Amino acid sequence: MDSLVVLVLCLSCLLLLSLWRQSSGRGKLPPGPTPLPVIGNILQIGIKDISKSLTNLSKVYGPVFTLYFGLKPIVVLHGYEAVKEALIDLGEEFSGRGIFPLAERANRGFGIVFSNGKKWKEIRRFSLMTLRNFGMGKRSIEDRVQEEARCLVEELRKTKASPCDPTFILGCAPCNVICSIIFHKRFDYKDQQFLNLMEKLNENIKILSSPWIQICNNFSPIIDYFPGTHNKLLKNVAFMKSYILEKVKEHQESMDMNNPQDFIDCFLMKMEKEKHNQPSEFTIESLENTAVDLFGAGTETTSTTLRYALLLLLKHPEVTAKVQEEIERVIGRNRSPCMQDRSHMPYTDAVVHEVQRYIDLLPTSLPHAVTCDIKFRNYLIPKGTTILISLTSVLHDNKEFPNPEMFDPHHFLDEGGNFKKSKYFMPFSAGKRICVGEALAGMELFLFLTSILQNFNLKSLVDPKNLDTTPVVNGFASVPPFYQLCFIPV
C-alpha cells in the first residue's frame, strides 16, 4: 500500500510540474494548442506526416506557434517570411542545433551535424575549407563525379535492359564520391566492405524516417530501456565508426604531411598542428563522427533524390523527352556531361530543381535551437528552445509555385524558357546551418541524371499514369515507394 501511495504522489508531482512548466512558459512563447500533461501535443500531431499537421496548425495559430513534445516546448516556423527572418536575418541567433537524443547517444555531441557552439563552428569551418581545397564546386571533385558517372552508366548497362530496382546502384554512385573525398578511394560496386557500408546507410535513412524515431526523440528514456529499431540505428553508426577508425589508422601509418590526399589526411594534419593548443576540438573521436556525418549527409540524401527523380521522369515521359532533346543538342553522344553545360541547359536545370522542390526530401529539416534569449515577432523565446522549420511550407508555397503539388519544371523557367532562380528554393535548409555539401549534391544530381539520360531511355513496367509517387515514409525524410524500371541503351 505504501508503495502505491508513493507512486501516486510521484505521478501527481510530475503532472503538477508539467502543468507549471507549460503555464509559466506560455506567456512568453508564441500561441499554440493546449498541451496535455506529460505528453504535450503529441496526440494532435500525425507522426506519419508531421508536415501536414504543421500546415493545419498554422492555419489556426499563424506562421509562428508553439507545440509541446512531452514536456519540451518547440517553436514552429511556417512559411517563407518566418523562416527567412529566423535563419537568414537572425542567422546567428537561430544557428543552434536542437535536442536530438538519439544523435546524442550516437555521437556524444561530436561531428558537424549535431554539434553546437565553438566545437560546431570550428569543425564546420575546417570541413568547408577542406572540401573547397579539394575542389568542391571546382574541377578536381567534378572529375571524381564524372568518373563515377561513367562507372554508374557501365553498371546500368550490365542490367541488359531487364527490369531492376535502382535503389542499390543509385546509392553506390554518391557513396563512392564521398569515399573518394574521405578515403581517396572508390570501391567496386561488388566489394563486400562497400556493400556493408551501403547497407547500413540505407537502413539508417529508413529507420530515421519512421514514426518510432519521432517518439524516441521526444521521450528519450525509451532509447535506453525499450527495444526497437533505434538500437539497430545505433549499432549501424557504431559499425561505421569502427570502419572509419580502421581507415584512420591506415592513414596514420602512411600519411605524407607534405601531400595530403583526402579529408582524413587533412584532419590528422590539423590534429598535429593543434596538439599544443589544448583542449582542441580536433580529436580522433571528432574525426570519426565528422566522417560519419559526411557519409550520412552525402550519400543517402543524394541517392534518395536520384531514385525519386527517375520515378518522376517515368511518370512524366514528356519531361524526359525534353531533357534528352536538350542533352542531344548541347552535349551530344561523344563526350561526358560537365558542369559548364548546365548554363546552356535551362530546361534540365529546371527539372533538377523541380525534383528537389517537389519531393521535399527533408520536410522539417533537422531541429534548430536559439543560442540566446531572443525577441522574435513580439515573442520571447528562451535560450536553448528547439525550433522546428517547415521546409515544406517554403518549397510548396502556392504563391511562389502555382499548383505546388504538381510536378512542373516551369516553376523554374521564365516566359522565355530561361532558368529562373527562386529564393524559396531551400531543399538544403538556409542560413548558417545550410548543408555543407550543397554544391557537391547539386553537381552530382546534374551529372548523374544527364549521364543516365544521355545513355538510356527509361521504360516503366506499368502505365506511367498508374505510377504512385507518394512517399512511403514522410517523417525525417521523404522516401519514394518501391518501383522497377528498364534502362534501355540509346
Rank of each mutant, 00 (worst) to 15 (best):
D397R: 03
F448L: 02
M339A: 05
Y379D: 02
L311A: 03
P101T: 13
D349K: 15
K200Y: 05
K118A: 14
K185Y: 03
L485Q: 00
N466V: 13
K158L: 08
N56S: 13
P33M: 03
K28Y: 12
M271K: 07
V323A: 10
S162Y: 09
C338N: 10
L11R: 03
S58G: 10
L87T: 11
L152G: 00
F263E: 02
L195Y: 04
V8C: 15
N218M: 15
S23G: 13
N455C: 09
I223M: 15
I284G: 04
P404R: 06
Q193P: 07
A309N: 02
Q252S: 08
I213N: 15
K158S: 09
I434T: 15
F110K: 11
V479P: 06
F219V: 10
A321M: 10
L233P: 06
I207L: 14
Y68L: 02
S58R: 10
E148M: 00
N259L: 07
T385C: 06
L395N: 13
R329N: 12
N107E: 09
K119H: 13
N202G: 09
L90W: 13
C266R: 10
S51A: 12
K465M: 10
L131V: 08
V6L: 12
L314G: 03
L380D: 11
A103V: 10
E288V: 15
K52D: 10
N56F: 07
D349H: 15
S140M: 10
L201G: 04
P402F: 08
A238Q: 13
A321N: 14
K59L: 11
Q146Y: 07
R125V: 05
A173Y: 00
I488A: 08
G111P: 15
L361W: 03
R132V: 05
L90Q: 15
D191K: 02
F425R: 03
V113C: 07
S162F: 08
A369V: 14
R186V: 03
M406L: 12
I327R: 00
W20I: 14
E272F: 08
C175I: 07
N204Y: 02
V330C: 13
G475H: 06
E85A: 09
S24P: 13
Y358I: 08
V370T: 14
P101C: 12
T167G: 07
C372I: 06
R26T: 13
V76G: 01
C13S: 14
L391D: 02
V462N: 07
E148V: 01
K185T: 08
S24H: 13
S53A: 11
M271G: 08
P73T: 04
I331C: 11
H316T: 05
L391P: 02
S3N: 13
T385E: 04
I39Q: 03
T305E: 03
E154P: 00
I207E: 05
N258Q: 09
V319P: 03
D143A: 14
C216K: 14
H410M: 13
G442V: 14
L71H: 14
G111H: 01
S478H: 14
W20M: 11
L36Q: 01
K190D: 13
V145D: 02
D165K: 00
P221Q: 12
L7P: 10
E250T: 06
T392P: 03
N204T: 14
Q192P: 15
N116R: 14
S303P: 02
Y308M: 08
N403I: 06
I47T: 15
K206P: 01
Q192C: 09
K52Y: 08
N277L: 09
V5N: 11
F194H: 02
Y61H: 13
T301D: 00
E318L: 09
I215V: 15
H78D: 06
A86P: 02
D408A: 03
K432P: 08
K190A: 12
T301H: 02
K270I: 06
T283F: 06
R186E: 01
V323K: 02
F126R: 03
T304I: 11
F65A: 02
I223R: 11
T469D: 08
D341E: 03
F183M: 07
L311Q: 02
I74T: 09
P489L: 00
T392R: 13
S209Q: 14
F100C: 15
V355C: 10
D468G: 06
L7K: 14
E199G: 11
M339S: 08
T348P: 00
E203M: 05
L128I: 12
S429R: 01
N56A: 13
G431D: 02
S3C: 13
Q278A: 11
P33F: 02
L43K: 08
D468A: 10
R144G: 03
L67Y: 06
F407H: 00
F295I: 15
P35R: 10
I387R: 00
P31E: 07
K200G: 07
S127G: 08
A103T: 15
S3T: 14
I182Q: 00
E148D: 00
T364V: 13
N204P: 00
E81W: 07
I327C: 06
L313I: 02
S390G: 07
I213C: 11
H78G: 07
E438Y: 11
I207N: 04
T229S: 15
N258W: 05
N258H: 12
C266G: 08
N56P: 13
K158N: 10
I178V: 09
L485N: 01
V6E: 09
N107P: 09
Y80R: 13
E400V: 11
F446S: 01
I359C: 09
T348C: 11
K138L: 11
R186W: 00
N466K: 12
H410I: 07
V83I: 15
D89A: 11
C486P: 00
V83N: 05
K235Y: 06
P221T: 11
R124L: 03
H410Y: 10
L36H: 08
D165I: 00
C435Q: 00
E253P: 06
R124V: 03
D360Q: 10
L131M: 11
D262R: 04
I213T: 14
E81R: 07
S451T: 11
R21F: 12
T302P: 04
T302E: 02
V462P: 03
E253Y: 09
T301L: 03
E285Y: 04
S422R: 10
M136W: 08
I207F: 07
A439C: 08
K273M: 12
L294G: 01
L314T: 07
I42Y: 14
S390L: 07
F267N: 02
E199R: 11
I359R: 04
L11S: 11
M129W: 12
F456V: 00
S254L: 10
Q214A: 14
A321S: 13
H411T: 01
E272K: 10
Y483A: 01
F134K: 14
T302G: 06
I169S: 01
S343P: 15
R377E: 07
F226G: 05
